[in-house]
Design a protein around this nucleic acid. Structure first.
Lengths: 331, 331
DNA sequence: CTGAAAGCGCTAACAA
DNA sequence: TTGTTAGCGCTTTCAG
């Protein structure tokens, strides 16, 4: 079965291919009866325009590239969902790329993206560095970065200010007299953790103290749980523990229970990236609602704006806010 | 900055564009010194072949379409990961499409897929029915379905036999004298649940009984937890509860605890789709390790096979197996 | 309002 | 071994 083309439709409707093209693209200048004639031919033959050929002719693909970390957390999924939902509205397709931890295949991905001539790129990834970003901008591909604040001529960003989050929360704690605050490392998300640490450090400094309770999980431990099991004791426990991910919060909760530390009475626990699992733990774990879905949606919206608007988009750094959800693991 | 094309390279290297094309595609018949000359020109100009133009010329895109449900569970993420990992090996790109619950936008997606002329499609989705599948095969797009056993000329599938899983497990239980087995509904995955139900039903029948403990969550309840809270009591409790998802297992665990039912002594609990969260619960929840990553990887491998092989691929229905992981919620 | 024809960038016979 | 040229399917001036 030969794939049917615009020529077939033209022949069937007894018009030129230019006319067919016009009705496909909803051009105004086609007489009603010829339009109908063409539409009938399209219907009859089951013709579908070839997006590849259109892409070639127009030098645009109406697809955008999306780069996300391979680690498939719920969070990433939500970002993708948000992204896709608004991409659908604007008829954009998504070309999905993932980066494996550790391996420097970023260049392959960039190469790929350039070759596939996507109209724009959204990047949610710690691993892309400035230089690689430059490589992309050199090919004038508009880019929106999720998670890091940055922008230039062809780069925009959507992010949450984790430093501020940590700063504000720590200040609150300190005001209430809770000064033993610990932050647990998460190697998977160095950039976020760095921001949190900055916020905590600044909060302590502004209160005339120094933050020094950054708990690193030694590499030889296969999980946070195994380390915390030895680390946390009734005697050696912070007043407030902050984790980035729900799984770490659960690890803290489990080890605390085993060590006979009661939460929240003897130790409070808060998870930055809130999830439904936090609500399923007992006691339920307090967390910050980070607007994951919106990060994706807003990023895509920004990108389309950059793609469509002639003159440069004015506001290319968009900060999204979070909401603290107190549950049972904090007083 | 004009995008540089094969013509620019040809001019720079002082050869014809055909020669440039040959070195790009690694044709054997190019003299070494001209090859080098061309390669230098490519390097100098920073030329990247336009995949769109290649696609048009070759009538193939080296991209495949992937349709997944929007609900972003860890499970889906793993499937995508597996898919992408092998897609990378074979240099295929991924066009990602998601289906929103309820809305019949499946036709839009199919339309889109056909227009974009992907070489093949992988579908992990309950919602695609036979008719829509036919629509795709009519356009001779090779398809691999994840989750449902089926195949025909251009369709293959990779799946786990949930019916067998449920059957075997139920038989074991019955053999041990545990006859009060309950299965909890999961509206999000009707197809899987249907299979599980079939397996249970058959197991009971073959043992001269009937399975009637299918717990439906009434629509007016916003979560399984809220319903189970009323439903489960010390008096009214099955001996074994089977859930599909970790979140439902956690809901059972929490409500059981609140009702004073001890797990596993008074009631056993097993989750079909195992996850790391099951291991974080206390007591840890037993589950079946479903090969999520492999489902994606094998599906992609099968698709490439269908794409490359001249003669029809012989074995287009691939069953993957699961492993029971006993933990603390079962005896 | 419609048609003819020149690209869009690349591949693949076919010649040379 | 290399160059010439005819498509691949569609859009878009430019004429008519």
């Amino acid at each position: 079965m030969k794939r049917i083309t615009i020529y077939d439709v033209a022949k069937e409707a007894d018009v030129s291919l230019a006319t067919v093209s016009r009705v496909i693209n909803g051009s105004e200048v086609v007489r009603e009866d010829t339009r109908i004639k063409v539409q009938e031919a399209i219907e009859k033959l089951g013709y579908k325009p070839n997006a590849i050929a259109q892409g070639l002719a127009l030098s645009k693909t109406t697809t955008i590239g999306l780069i996300v970390p391979e680690a498939s957390y719920f969070y990433t999924g939500q970002i993708i969902n948000g992204l896709i939902d608004v991409a659908k509205i604007y008829k954009y397709n998504i070309m999905l790329h993932t980066t494996t931890e550790g391996i420097t295949e970023m260049n392959d991905i960039i190469e790929n993206i350039i070759k596939s001539r996507v109209d724009g790129v959204v990047i949610f990834n710690d691993k892309l560095n400035k230089e690689e970003l430059n490589q992309l901008t050199r090919y004038q591909v508009p880019i929106v970065v999720i998670g890091n604040r940055m922008s230039d001529e062809t780069v925009g960003s959507v992010y949450v200010d984790y430093a501020k989050l940590a700063f504000d929360y720590a200040c609150d704690c300190i005001k209430q007299g809770k000064k033993q605050i610990a932050l647990i490392e998460d190697r998977k998300n160095p950039a976020m953790i760095k921001q949190l640490r900055e916020g905590l450090t600044r909060a302590f400094e502004e209160n005339g103290m120094t933050f020094e309770n950054y708990i690193e999980i030694p590499k030889e431990y296969r999980s946070s749980y195994l380390f915390l099991k030895e680390y946390l004791t009734k005697e050696n426990r912070p007043e407030v523990v902050i984790t980035y991910r729900d799984s770490q919060a659960m690890a803290v909760m489990n080890t605390a229970k085993e060590a006979g530390i009661s939460i929240p009475e003897e130790m409070e626990l808060v998870c930055i990236l809130d999830s439904k699992y936090n609500a399923m733990a007992r006691p339920q774990i307090s967390g910050f609602k980070i607007p994951d879905y919106d990060l994706g949606a807003v990023a895509m919206r920004l990108l389309t704006k950059m793609l469509h608007e002639e003159n440069e988009v004015s506001d290319k750094e968009i900060e999204l806010s979070y909401i603290f959800t107190p549950r049972k693991s904090t007083k």
